[in-house]
Nucleic acid binder design. Sequence first.
DNA 1: CCAACTGTACCGTCTGGTCGGTAAAGTCAA
DNA 2: TTGACTTTACCGACCAGACGGTACAGTTGG
Lengths: 184, 184
Amino acid sequence: MAPRRPSSRARILKAAADVAREAGIGHFSLDAVAARAGLSKGGLLYNFPSKSKLLEALVEDHLLAVEAELNDHAARSAGRPNALAASFLAVARDQERLRDEQPSGLLAALAEDPSFLEPVLRFNRQTLTRMTATASDPHMALVAFLAIEGLRLTRLLGLNVLDASERATAYAKLETLLAASRPA
Amino acid sequence: MAPRRPSSRARILKAAADVAREAGIGHFSLDAVAARAGLSKGGLLYNFPSKSKLLEALVEDHLLAVEAELNDHAARSAGRPNALAASFLAVARDQERLRDEQPSGLLAALAEDPSFLEPVLRFNRQTLTRMTATASDPHMALVAFLAIEGLRLTRLLGLNVLDASERATAYAKLETLLAASRPA
DNA sequence: CCAACTGTACCGTCTGGTCGGTAAAGTCAA
DNA sequence: TTGACTTTACCGACCAGACGGTACAGTTGG
């Protein structure tokens, strides 16, 4: 599945993410991506035979990165109560601190065809299931999941109401709530 | 600002919302809206001189509806502690129960130009401010706001992970948390 | 009659995708 | 080694369709 020379593919995916973020999801065109990646449209379409395939790869790429980060963090704090929920929180906070770039490729994919987000849906469902299953208070974990999705999606849509300190407050409150929900 | 004969305008806005929802935000075209509304593109462009104006009106329309509903509910439960936060919760639940249609016009507007969502941003900011200002536990109100946005936006993007009973659980838990945070 | 409104035909642009070509790198038989 | 042939990766011209918007000719209620 992986190409022999991955440099072009990676470069294109990066360019695509940049274009989606900067040009806006309504102007996500192959020409723009090709120009940004420094090759012709022919070359782009050689690597990704259609726009759909490109968007698909963009979503998959993003999802793999998130999944890796989450699993990594969860592994380090395994065994502790609410480990996964806490990791979910921590990873969300990390991602927001490190890269302020939004994964707008997801929106571009949504614009093309909503079904492109199905992998994201599956991933979220699985994550939530694991979170509630390992939480001392499943209902609280559910609320935490929703609040973090709220943070993530408002930022993704440019509807972020909170400034940095308010976001920090929200994270802290969620941590407190999760911790307070421990059995004994 | 309002036309003398509002029936066309309302019919068009309804049709536009339907098209955005059913055809997908990437295929939100004037032709499609006109066909759906049962008039020609000329007629459509007579009522809304450009696509931008149509999307603008779509956002404004949606926002006015939400605002009215929220204010109405808040007025009925005024004076009680956490009145606005509770109203925000109740209205979100009502909207989900009554109309399962998503306000996908917002997404179509976003695709055209992200700045179309600025009114939504302002509204959200104002609502959140009022919520936290009148809440016995502002941090909890903040979390509740985010959780509800999470519910709303996951549904809007087709990323809804929760089934009806899980959503009901989430609402209940949020109510409990808000109530438990009362001063005395 | 007139203004509000609607329909039809059309234009220019943008865009996804096709296609023929090509330069470079490899493969391989003699 | 070398020359013939294949594969890889890419370019650039082009096309067909979709789309936003314009022009203008009706039509109709008051």
